[in-house]
Amino acid sequence: MGFFLETLIGGLMAGMLYSLVALGFVLIYKASGVFNFAQGAMVLFAALAMARFAEWIPGWLGFENQVLANILAFAVAAAVMFVVAWLIERLVLRHLVNQEGATLLMVTLGIAYLLEGIGQSLFGDNIYSIDVGMPKDPVLVLEGMFPGGLLINKEDFIAALIAAALVAALSLFFQKTATGRALRAVADDHQAAQSIGIPLARIWVIVWFVAGIAALVAGIIWGSKLGVQFSLATVALRALPVVILGGLTSVPGAIIGGLIIGVGEKLSEVYIGPLVGGGIEIWFAYMLALVFLLFRPQGLFGEKIIDRV
């Protein structure tokens, strides 16, 4: 029982991190109807900026305080993500208003390759560290109840809390602010939103910037766990089944979907994996999402699309 709980908790914490990456997909899809394949590349780009500026800034300004270096690096990396958002709107999206979804998807594929290449050219292609003081050693709880206790990974626990806080903040932003409502209006119909005076260009910059911040936070957490390197871009692949399952238009869907996928893949690897040779968690997550789609094609919380003829 103790081992099952450990696996379950591990899965929930991993799922929370998947939700954070999935949120980037959802935000951009909600506001621009674009399935942003570049979300993983944005995570890599943002993490590289954070890691490198945290290393460079103390040298430029002549101090050694790691906390201050991290704060300044976060601010600079956020500014970099704003520039990225602005460039994407100015050079790409502006020219593709009301184009087919497939066209926009292919464009984001191009953006992904560009960001990966430019990111590694600007910031280097080595392995870089992000040290935000996350504890690395585990803690054992409920030792009286379970033999050997329940192992909780402190780093994952804190990361899950940060992810949960960001997800909650973004949900509020979408539901309760005028900008959030404008974002949703743009997502429903570009032309209708423009006709009532919503500035499309500004909204797109805002939403890509917000997705960039989500990518930055995800990049810091994953980068602190894995080191900042190219593999971070593949983290987005972990979030794809989450958005398939949760629905592309739902923030709560990203959260619940993330948790289901996180738990599902860990339990499957531990309990089914040994029976079939192991290494199944990645494809099992996709299979789980596809099974859900058989019953709810729009995902758990996605909007049902009804076209009247």
Binding site: F3, E6, T7, G10, G11, A14, L151, D156, L226, S231, T234, V235, R238, E265, K266, E269, V270, G273, P274, G277, G278, G279, E281, I282
Partner: peptide, 21 residues
């Protein structure tokens, strides 16, 4: 005990939980 890790290997929590067990 054989424990495969899928490419590129960034997700190994389940593997190491099995090792812990």
């Amino acid at each position: 005990q054989l424990l495969p890790v899928a490419h590129p290997g960034v997700e190994q929590k389940a593997t190491w939980l099995q090792i812990r067990q």
